[in-house]
Structure formats: structure tokens, C-alpha cells
Design a protein around this nucleic acid. Structure first.
Lengths: 202, 202
DNA sequence: CCTACCGATCGGTAGG
DNA sequence: CCTACCGATCGGTAGG
């Protein structure tokens, strides 16, 4: 059995990826409901109906794009959970990875942040659970730092996690890949501001 | 001349406001393109076509909602520009007002952040200009604090402003009015974390 | 504010 | 991957 019955041939897989890529661009620019399948097909130089030779439905595109983004965040952070790093370094590293996912996938990140609400229930719930996992990761990280004495004892864990997440997530609105700042440089700055504060030391 | 010719009667004005309010809810939940005029009418208990006795078009709703939100941010912050407050207090107060606008208008804020891209050119440009004004306000505020010596001299003004804006803007994704935290309490925490940092002092 | 309707466009399919 | 088409729904209007 050299092939599974539903194995896709190489050109098909490539086309599929092209579709996802362009869908990511359009969904992030115009939104899911603001993008028609004919818009998408036109960008690929084919007819609207031809898309369905490669994908099952418009919703499949959204599901796939959002879940891929969620998976990337998950993958970037999960391997850090058990890492044996001091809390500060771990926080910086988490922020760096998180921001890299945003920076290297600006379209998918935008779709992830804006369009997940339009998913139908099963995918919607999976994505919500994923977001909770990310929240939980940052809360654990802060908690560790408080326990170890590296972070201030009077921090509210939930609020600190929100603050860190704000910084790395909101970047999808202003960061421009290819601009003057690498994700690493952004995190160096954000990391220092968050850890040491904006106030000048007396 | 007791009335201007196009003065609206009271019941009309009220209905208009109802329409904007419900449109804000629907646009924030389902997006602009994900909401049909018939959805909107149904929520108001009228027929789709009847909406056009009160408004000119769907786009008018979006323009009005986004510009109202922009105007609220503008109004909340503008009066602070010339205020004679120490930089720290000014930053806290700006964040408090900013977050109050978000908190008291979760729907409009969500529409403002998500749907402004769908505006047609004239309104799009006005809103973009407004956003720049807000950015500029925060940068000026940080700049003042650096000059006065209250904020660290090595801060990157642009990045610090992004960090502050991240904190207050991202709240539209997680803040729940009527929950356990008032905007003031959120800002007390965010303000302290941003000013003093997460790290425990040696 | 309703009924009845307009042309346009939507996601998706059949058959090739 | 195309042509040709489906029923449904879209924003909006006319006339009352």
C-alpha cells in the first residue's frame, strides 16, 4: 500500500496552502464576512466555484486559520512551561516567542483575534479553551516569580498576566514586520519597562 | 423661527438612538458585515425596510458608532493635555479616563477597534487621524515625564506609549462591566505595575 | 412603520 | 479547474 486512498498529490497541497495564505490576507483585511469566496478566487486567478475542488467550505478556511494560529501560540509557549529558567528570563522568553508568533503571522494573528467569534460551536469552544490555556500559562509564570521572590509579592496574578498579554497581543495592531524593530528588540524594551517600571529610580 | 426645518421630533430621536444602541451590540458581537439590517430590525421588533425611515444607510450606522467612540476618547483625553499635573498623576488619570471610556462603552469600543477598517475613505481617514491624535497624546505625556525627570531617561517614547496603550486598549477583550473590578481599580493596578515594575525591589 | 418588491451578490453544486 | 446554475439573502426603495 504505497499510498493511502485519500493522499493528496503535491500540486493539490500547494494550492490548498495558497488558498489558506490568501484567505488569511483577505480575512485580516476585510474580515471573514467581508470576504467573498469570489474575492478569494479572483486573487488566485481562478473562478469562485473552483475553490471547492480544494476545500469543503468557507468556514473550513476560518477554522483552519484560527486553529493554526492558536496552535502556534500553544507550541511556542508550551515547551517553556517546564523549562528550568529564572522567572524573569522565562517571562522575557515567553514574551519573545509570543511576539514572534504575532510578528511572523500578522494576518493569522489578526484573524485569530478578530474572527474567532464567527466560528461555529465546536471550533469556537476549542479556541476558547486554547485561549484559557495561554492565560493560564502566564498566570503560572507570574505565580512562580512571586513565590521565588523575583516578582513583587503584592502583585495581583490575574492583572499582571493581563498586562503582559496586552503588551504582546496588542502588537498585532501596530507592529510592522520588516520595519526597524525586530520582535526581539520590542521585547527587550517591553520586558525592561514591565520589569523595572517607567519611573526613574531615586 | 421656533424650529429649524429639519429638527427631529422627540420620538424619532429616541428611535434613532435605539437603533444605534442595538447596532452597537450586533456589530460588536457579529461584526459589521456579519450583521444584516434585517437582524437589526428584528431586534427592534420592526421590519427591515422600516429602518430607513430613521437612518440613511447601514454605513451611516458604522460611521456614527466609530466616530462617537473616537470622539469619546478624544474628549476624555484632550482636556488633560494642558492640565497642570505631575507626569505620574497625569498618566494615571489619562489611563483611568481611557479605561472608563472602554469600560462604559464595551460595544462601541469593540466596534471602534475591529470595524473601522470597513469605513469608506472619508470616514476612514478621519478615524485614522483621531487614532494618531491619541497616540500623540500619550507620547507627549511620556516625553514630559522624561524631561521632568519623573520617568526614566532611557525610555523609548514611542514604545512606552505603545505599552500604555496596550494595557488600556486590550481591556476591551477581557474587562466585564459589573464584574468585581471598577476601571479605577484596574488602573490603580496597571498604573502601579507600569510605574514601579513587576520586579521586587532588592 | 408595513408590504412588496428591486437588482446584486452570496456560498455552494452539477456536470463536464 | 470551468461553465452554468441553485436558492437564499443582502441593502435599499416605492408607495402607502
Amino acid at each position: 500500500m504505497p499510498r493511502t486512498p485519500d493522499a493528496e498529490t503535491t500540486p493539490l497541497k500547494t494550492r490548498r496552502e495558497q488558498i489558506y495564505e490568501v484567505a488569511g490576507q483577505l480575512f485580516s483585511e476585510r474580515g471573514y464576512h467581508g470576504t467573498s469566496m469570489r474575492d478569494l478566487a479572483a486573487r488566485l486567478g481562478i473562478q469562485g466555484g473552483s475553490l471547492y475542488a480544494h476545500i469543503a467550505s468557507k468556514e473550513e478556511l476560518l477554522v483552519e486559520l484560527v486553529e493554526r494560529a492558536a496552535h502556534q501560540f500553544d507550541e511556542a509557549l508550551f515547551s517553556l512551561s517546564a523549562a528550568d529558567l529564572p522567572p524573569e528570563a522565562k517571562l522575557r522568553e515567553a514574551m519573545r516567542r509570543h511576539l514572534e508568533v504575532v510578528a511572523q503571522n500578522m494576518d493569522s494573528a489578526t484573524v485569530f483575534f478578530h474572527e474567532w467569534k464567527h466560528l461555529s460551536p465546536p471550533a469556537y469552544q476549542r479556541v476558547t479553551a486554547w485561549r484559557d490555556t495561554i492565560d493560564h500559562f502566564y498566570r503560572e509564570l507570574i505565580q512562580e516569580g512571586i513565590r521565588s521572590g523575583d516578582f513583587r509579592a503584592d502583585l495581583d496574578v490575574k492583572m499582571s498576566a493581563y498586562l503582559v498579554l496586552s503588551a504582546v497581543n496588542w502588537a498585532y495592531t501596530w507592529y510592522r514586520p520588516g520595519g526597524s524593530l525586530t520582535p526581539g528588540q520590542v521585547v527587550d524594551q517591553f520586558g525592561q519597562m514591565l520589569l523595572d517600571g517607567l519611573r526613574s529610580q531615586p
